[in-house]
């Protein structure tokens, strides 16, 4: 009788420990699944954002130099970008896009053409001092130096159940006006 009781106690303790181990592993699997899902959502929406033209994205900013978007963009069109709350597999994800116009100026040594210049003869090339005024896009002049670069930061946030921990994945890129 004592032997059976001891054996039963050992059996119950080991079953409880093993089941705890398995459920810990299962929770870890679900946590990774949510992480992978968040990365997939991030990738999909970011690809759509980068596929949109500069002018379309700029129009969503209005007159602001910096804005955060959390509503669906271009709803009902083939270019629809899903921002805001999105529920996938019982997990609610919060997707936001931060847009910021970025002033850029590129440095070059400009070509200086004089009477000796011949395209076919490299020895006739003359270059001026380094300057960053010829390729400047900082909004300083209405059209010539208008903003042509928008920085986009896409974030996907969610709350891990049970532990109630906030988690986030983010990526960034640049949308550039290459038209005209």
């Amino acid at each position: 009788m004592v032997e059976i009781m001891v054996a039963f106690t050992i059996l119950v303790m080991s079953v409880l420990s093993i089941s705890g181990l398995v459920s810990y592993g299962h929770r870890g699997t679900e946590k990774d699944f949510r992480n992978v899902q968040a990365i997939q959502i991030l990738e999909e929406q970011m690809n759509k954002m980068l596929a949109a033209s500069y002018s379309k994205i700029e129009s969503t900013m209005g007159a602001a130099a910096k804005t955060t978007l959390n509503n669906v963009l271009f709803a009902g069109t083939e270019h629809q970008i899903v921002l805001g709350k999105l529920t996938v597999s019982k997990t609610e994800y919060d997707i936001t896009a931060e847009l910021e116009k970025v002033p850029v100026s590129f440095g070059i040594m400009p070509l200086e053409i004089d009477n000796s210049y011949e395209f076919a003869k490299v020895e006739t090339y003359r270059f001026g001092a380094l300057t960053n005024t010829l390729a400047r896009f900082d909004g300083s002049n209405n059209n010539k130096n208008r903003y042509r670069v928008i920085k986009v930061i896409m974030r996907v946030r969610w709350v891990e159940p049970i532990v109630n921990k906030n988690r986030e994945v983010a990526a960034m890129s640049y949308i550039v006006d290459l038209e005209g």
Binding site: F137, R148, M172, S173, Y174, I175
Partner: peptide, 13 residues
């Protein structure tokens, strides 16, 4: 995504 952005900046220049 970052590399794509830098490549576009290079094309702009």
């Amino acid at each position: 995504f970052f590399a794509q952005g830098i490549q576009k900046l290079a094309v702009l220049k």
